[in-house]
């Protein structure tokens, strides 16, 4: 069962099928493998052309690993990553070699979380933003200069900044530079791994606006990874929730926030502090710690923390189902529980 159908008629740009990534745990002098971290454990979803799919979950649930598998910065253990190229040819990114990937790189780009680590400190903005252009064949310097100037203007920076080094810029400005670099090759899919998490609130709003505007203008498709639910809700068309390496729920944003079907999603939403002192603080519904992906619980991974867990949950792992079209849940009782929220 996969999250492949959509109420929309849009075509999927990316289809992820049964994606797994296990990191070996080694020990001893001879680096013997003693176990596996199941960082991504059977994840399937689609990303439609022109939409923003938000990916949320707690720290360590496998968001970064999933997105890096798509970019092939990490080699998946198994599964398919089907990407539809410009000419409608469908390729499985998971199977390609380094050399075969090279021509595809321009079509899938990434925006990073850390505005300080993502730019090469020894290169000027021109070299940083122009690097993808250069290696993709734009060898004429004058042409590259024009294009970098355009890109900088596009993200709201002055083209005169081109000859400055990254250390001259603030976090928010660097994030814009990173966005300019990601857009330099005219990608169709942009994977943004926590692009606003390291930014201050006032700057965060600027960058979110920029991303929304760029998407509208350039018809980009975003996979937007974040742990801040308000941010994800603001920017996404659909939201996927991960827990211990698994996809537990995926639905259109409005549906997910008003009528979540997975107990974890609802608990996660209740934990978000609302910036209004008049709204009374709700009781803490999610207790305990996230289990280790090296040693996940039996049955439903969420059962030790779930308010509704039954004996069945302890032994039988629920499958990802689609109780209503476009709404995918991994819970035995998805149809029965009423988790309607105030949102």
């Amino acid at each position: 069962m996969t999250a492949s159908h959509s109420v929309d008629t849009k075509q999927p740009l990316l289809q992820i099928r049964d994606l797994r990534k296990f990191f070996p745990i080694t020990a001893g002098v001879f680096n013997k493998t003693v176990g596996h971290v199941r960082a991504v454990d059977d994840v399937s979803f689609d990303v439609f052309e022109g939409e923003t799919l938000g990916l949320v979950g707690e720290s360590g649930c496998g968001k970064t690993t999933t997105s890096r598998c798509i970019l092939r910065a990490v080699d998946p253990t198994s599964g398919q990553i089907l990407f539809r190229r410009k000419n409608d040819e469908i390729v499985d990114l998971a199977k390609l070699t380094r050399e075969e990937l090279q021509p595809l790189r321009a079509e899938i780009q990434m925006i990073f979380q850390d505005p300080f680590g993502s730019l090469n400190p020894r290169m000027t903005l021109f070299d940083n933003v122009g690097e993808p252009l250069l290696v993709n064949g734009m060898t004429n310097r004058a042409e590259r200069t024009d294009r970098v100037a355009d890109l900088l203007k596009l993200v709201g920076l002055r083209p005169e900044f081109m000859h400055r080094f990254p250390h001259a810029f603030s976090g928010g400005q660097r994030q814009r530079i990173g966005i300019a670099r990601a857009l330099s090759t005219n990608p169709r899919l942009v994977v943004a791994d926590e692009p606003v998490s390291a930014l201050d609130v006032s700057v965060q709003a600027q960058v979110l606006n920029l991303l929304l505007e760029l998407q509208k203008r350039l018809g980009l498709t975003f996979l937007f990874v974040a742990h801040d639910l308000s941010v994800v809700r603001h920017i996404s068309d659909r939201v996927a929730v991960m827990y211990v390496g698994q996809l537990v729920e995926l639905a259109p944003t409005k549906t997910l926030f008003s009528r979540p079907r997975h107990p974890y999603t609802s608990a996660l939403m209740r934990a978000v502090p609302v910036p209004d002192p008049r709204i009374p603080v709700g009781e803490v519904t999610l207790k305990g710690e996230v289990p280790s992906p090296a040693n996940p619980p039996t049955g439903c991974y969420f059962h030790p923390r779930c308010r509704f867990a039954t004996d069945r949950c302890k032994v039988e792992a629920p499958a990802l189902r689609e109780p209503t079209p476009g709404h995918f849940v991994r819970c035995h009782f998805a149809d029965e529980l009423d988790l309607t929220t105030a949102f």
Binding site: V201, S202, Q204, A205, L208, L229, S230, V231, R233, H234, I235, S236, T253, K254, F257, M269, V272, V274, P275, A342, F343
Partner: peptide, 9 residues
């Protein structure tokens, strides 16, 4: 400037 969990998206 903060996106709220209840506002317009």
């Amino acid at each position: 400037s903060i996106p709220s969990i209840v506002g317009q998206t």
